[in-house]
Design a protein around this nucleic acid. Structure first.
Lengths: 131, 131
DNA sequence: GACCACTATGTTATGACATTACACAGCCAA
DNA sequence: TTGGCTGTGTAATGTCATAACATAGTGGTC
């Protein structure tokens, strides 16, 4: 499943936990589930998460202060990712749209704005929950 | 400038403060600046902010847990707003793009996802700061 | 092998952001 | 004048995130 060869112990623990979750998890929720594995302080989780974000293996959902594992192995490559978050069941869908990326980059170019990071999050209800 | 006729006292205080700021403010920063006006507890600010968000007079920037006054009187009408946030000077630019809105709505329609709220935030450096 | 730089780790304390719970006051319509 | 609604005030608490400091492994270089 997950070949996290070059990850440290803490990073592996955190990523595994995220991958097994069916909804975004807060750092403290992750911590609670990893007590038995020896983790005790928030910082241990936050440090692991930071690296995972850097490596493109996890995402941070700004609108809910929570984290998810990447849906696809190299989804960070697609440049700009949008998230659709169901507020009922918690499920998160990832997708990317080249046209949207184009438009935002176009605006930035015209304005002389140097983009570092873009977050796009749609809150609502997924098909199943809206039915 | 601001005809906040139908606002309560606390709401007016908070909105005025936001409008005079040249960068996003956290709820606690707002509170600190309104101590002299009689505000003492975070909740007084959060309650005012909630109403202002509802009325479309202010925005919440999810990626920095901060708030800004609307750039234009009725900018919520444009449906979907993107924010470009300069990490150096703190300045925030608001803009909307119909094509982007189209694309996101298209995705949602196809997926059967019922959209409640969308946040789009670009972090980086504005032209002046990037120079 | 001794040294040094770099990265990861563990722990405590603290800071920053947000909400719950409860009590009271004003306003307006039935 | 009663009851519902909205706003307000206050204290306590809950949730999210980082600073500061100490320790330990790893790998390169002389």
């Amino acid at each position: 499943m997950s070949a996290h060869s070059d990850l440290t112990r803490n990073q592996s623990l955190v990523l595994d936990r995220l991958e097994k979750a069916d909804a975004p998890m807060s750092a403290y929720a992750i911590l609670d589930q990893l007590r038995d594995d020896g983790l005790r302080a928030p910082l241990q989780v936050y440090r692991a998460l930071e690296k995972l974000l850097d490596m493109g293996l996890a995402h941070r959902l700004e609108s809910m202060n929570a984290f998810v594992a990447c849906a696809q192995p190299h989804c960070h490559d697609s440049g700009l990712i949008a998230f659709a978050i169901c507020e009922k069941c918690g499920q998160v869908s990832e997708f990317s749209d080249d046209v949207v990326r184009e438009r935002l980059n176009g605006w930035a170019d015209r304005e002389g704005f140097v983009v570092k990071r873009t977050t796009m999050e749609i809150r609502g209800e997924c098909r199943a929950c809206a039915a």
